[in-house]
Write a protein that binds this DNA or RNA. Structure first.
Ligand SMILES: [Mn+2]
Ligand SMILES: [Mn+2]
Ligand SMILES: [Zn+2]
Ligand SMILES: [Zn+2]
Lengths: 159, 159
DNA sequence: TTGTAAATAAGAATGATTACGATTTATAAT
DNA sequence: ATTATAAATCGTAATCATTCTTATTTACAA
């Protein structure tokens, strides 16, 4: 579990300045592990405590946090990219994403590895896996009918 | 193997008009099975035989072909969506994509199905798989060094 | 040949993201 | 505490893919 102070100390050690807006953005991710946010989400959140804020600042900060592996970018969603706190798992893995609460949950098997040896006429060099569904808590609350899905509304068609 | 005349006959039967530009777009896909094209690719190709062409016409025609399952849309690529001739396989399957020639090759196993029963605390309702690498012919021509990759230059990070 | 709805062109609008010049600010040295 | 400096930020314009609008053209059936 990364904490905000630790992340900011790490950035400062790398020569970056410690601003309130950066603190706010880091806190948003650290306080909601597994949850994904769009740049607009981040902008709206920080705007509530800093009335003058440029979208450019959000994008620059996200880029900074990406470079330091503090957050991860999820492309391939519908229109806008989404970001989440980087998970601590160091080795190759994938995630399942809950369609109701939006949380990402890591899974510790890679379903592609098994295929690699069987594929004789194709050299696999990269792959992505996206799995959507409902996590245990959401499944139970879903028993009857549920509210509409918020994140990842549009599924991604794969090559 | 779908042929152009057959596709146009199908569209006409559904009440759509048969225009030269539609013929050209259908022919591009039918003549290059497995190959993916961006809207701009399609535009450039058709423009060479119809000097006045609107990008909107390309997008509208792609939408029409999508609705009739004549082509498939691949989201999740870098910036622009890509399209290819729909493959005949009726059942659920995935593809591998060659990073050199850009061809999509269907594979007939779904690596996610095996996981579904093992996942006890997550209900999988949808998934996508994207596999990139080099096909047999391209692997051999790649022996030394190769020309730069054209399609799918940016990999997709998965949730 | 002619009427009619469908198709198209041209360009404006949108939404996400990036780029830029001017201004402000965090931080370290004085 | 004051100040110098580079980093950070703002406000806004630019970019790129895609969609929308409206007037005009065209396929095709009668
Ligand atoms: Mn992870
Ligand atoms: Mn297929
Ligand atoms: Zn959930
Ligand atoms: Zn190839």
């Amino acid at each position: 579990m990364a904490d905000v102070g630790e992340v900011l100390r790490q950035l400062k050690a790398a020569g970056y300045k410690c601003t309130g807006k950066r603190q706010a953005i880091v806190a948003l991710f650290v306080d909601h592990p597994g949850q994904t946010f769009s740049a607009k989400d981040v902008y709206t959140y920080v705007l509530s405590m800093y009335p003058n804020l440029s979208l450019d600042t959000v994008y620059r900060t996200l880029e900074l946090l990406l470079q330091h592996r503090i957050i991860e970018r999820l492309d391939g969603a519908d229109d806008a990219a989404r970001f989440r706190l980087a998970c601590e798992e160091p080795s190759h893995h994938h995630h399942v994403v809950c369609l109701r609460c939006g949380k990402s949950i890591p899974i510790h098997v890679c379903p592609i590895e098994a295929m690699r040896e069987e594929m004789d006429d194709f050299d696999i060099v990269d792959h992505t896996v996206a799995i959507y569904g409902y996590c245990r808590p959401c499944r139970e609350q879903n028993a009857g009918q549920s509210r509409p899905v918020q994140p990842h509304e549009g599924m991604v068609t794969e090559p």
